[in-house]
Simulated scan of single mutants.
Amino acid sequence: MSNVYVSPHPLIAHKLSKLRDVATEPKKFRELVREIAGLLAYEATADLVTTPVDVQTPLAITRAAQLKEKIGLVPILRAGLGMVEGFWELMPSAEVWHIGLYRDEKTLKPVEYYNKLPIEPTVSVCLILDPMLATGGSATATVEVLKRWGVSKIKFVGLIGAPEGIALMQRQHPDVPIYLAAIDDHLNEKGYIVPGLGDAGDRQFGTA
Rank of each mutant, 00 (worst) to 15 (best):
K28T: 15
P52I: 05
D175G: 12
V96L: 03
I193V: 15
E25Y: 05
I71M: 04
H186D: 14
T24V: 06
L129K: 02
P8D: 15
S7A: 11
I160T: 04
M91K: 00
L16R: 08
L129N: 03
A64E: 08
L39I: 03
P121F: 11
V176R: 07
L81R: 00
T142M: 07
I61Q: 12
P10F: 04
K109R: 13
V176F: 10
F87K: 05
V123K: 15
I128P: 07
W149N: 07
K70V: 03
T107D: 02
N115P: 01
K28E: 15
Q172N: 12
G206S: 14
P26W: 11
V49F: 10
P195W: 01
D202H: 05
L40A: 12
A94F: 01
A139D: 03
T50C: 14
I166T: 09
R103L: 08
A23I: 05
K68F: 07
L67K: 01
V194A: 04
E120N: 11
V145W: 01
G136E: 10
L129W: 03
T50Y: 13
L40E: 11
M132D: 02
W97V: 11
A60N: 06
L19P: 01
L39S: 06
G86P: 06
K147S: 05
K109Q: 15
T57Y: 06
T45P: 02
L133H: 06
R78K: 09
N3H: 15
L39H: 09
E120D: 09
L168P: 03
P174W: 09
T57S: 13
L81H: 00
P121K: 13
S93G: 06
I61M: 11
P58Y: 02
G196V: 06
L19D: 02
V145T: 11
D21W: 09
R78Q: 07
I61Y: 06
A162H: 08
L67C: 04
G150L: 09
T50I: 12
T142F: 08
V176P: 07
S93I: 04
L180H: 12
D47W: 10
I36G: 09
A141W: 01
V151L: 05
G150F: 08
D185R: 12
L59E: 01
L159Y: 09
D185N: 11
